[in-house]
């Protein structure tokens, strides 16, 4: 009888472990499109859809795209920003980049390469106890508040790899900030689309850097040879900035 009970309990534990965590975690936050050079904050909704080992994070702007209304800004932002697909089982991460023609490109990156400094500092987010962790990633310092009680080693954008879901994350200058609002049981997203990209083979971060640099130099050379300001005494200067360090 005792043996039967132990076997049943073992099956129950194995079943619990094998059960996939599914659901959507909703975040709210902001992003400064000028990355600290000036104040250009916009409000965003973030969404992390988790389906077992796979997840998809996207950020969409709340309300109207204000930049489109300004004369001195050409707004070519994609419909969603910071879109990242993660597959823990194959140790893969894909991220999206929208070019000048608003064509979407996907590149691979390392899944959770960041080394976190975990601390004992704690706070409650939406009634969930969270612990603080800090890291440096691609030229910026980030702080994350993760919930050890939610056993999902994931978070907004490329962040993750902590022993719990990241409920709040922000960079040192607070140019990007995401805080959890709530969650739902919905978990649908097109996994097959991303898996097919991985299967076909996808270029990594160095290829992304090369792509962006090529795009910039093309823009720079066209810009240099296309001055249509007759009588202008001053020549304009073109500079490029990237959220992730790309040099």
């Amino acid at each position: 009888m005792r043996t039967v009970l132990i076997v049943l309990l073992s099956f129950f534990v194995i079943h619990l472990q094998a059960q996939e965590i599914k659901g959507t975690w909703y975040y709210q936050g902001k992003f400064n499109g000028s990355f600290g050079r000036s104040e250009n904050y916009r409000e965003y909704w973030g969404r992390l859809i988790v389906h077992g080992d796979r997840s998809l994070f996207t950020m969409k702007e709340e309300g109207q795209h204000h930049a489109a209304l300004q004369d001195n800004t050409i707004d070519l932002r994609g419909d969603s920003l910071f879109t990242v697909y993660k597959d823990h089982s194959s140790n893969s991460l894909l991220f999206e980049f929208s070019d000048l023609n608003q064509k979407t490109h996907y590149f691979a990156d390392t899944l959770f390469p960041m080394e976190w400094n975990t601390t004992e500092e704690h706070k409650m987010i939406g009634g969930i106890p969270c612990l603080k962790a800090e890291t440096r990633f691609k030229g910026r310092g980030y702080t994350a508040w993760y919930a050890p009680t939610i056993t999902i080693s994931d978070g907004p954008w490329k962040l993750g790899g902590l022993p719990g879901l990241i409920l709040e994350a922000y960079d040192d200058e607070n140019n990007w900030h995401m805080t959890l609002l709530g969650n739902s049981e919905a978990y649908d997203f097109d996994i097959a689309f991303f898996e097919s990209k991985i299967t076909k083979g996808i270029e990594g971060f160095p290829a992304f850097v090369g792509f962006v640099k090529k795009l910039f130099s093309r823009l720079e050379s066209s810009f240099g040879s296309n001055s249509d300001c007759i009588g202008c005494q001053t020549k304009s200067v073109l500079k490029f900035h990237s959220w992730e360090k790309i040099d």
Binding site: G33, S34, F35, R37, A67, D71, N72, T73, I74, D75, L76, R77, G78, L81, F82, F97, S98, D99, L100, V212, F216, L219, Q233, T234, S236, V237, L238, K239, F240, H241, S242, W243, E244
Partner: peptide, 19 residues
């Protein structure tokens, strides 16, 4: 100095004119 920009989200091209 006047500035304008081409906004691609996490990538930005900034144009500036100083007179």
């Amino acid at each position: 100095t006047m500035k304008g920009k081409l906004d691609l989200g996490p990538i930005e091209a900034e144009v500036s004119c100083t007179t």
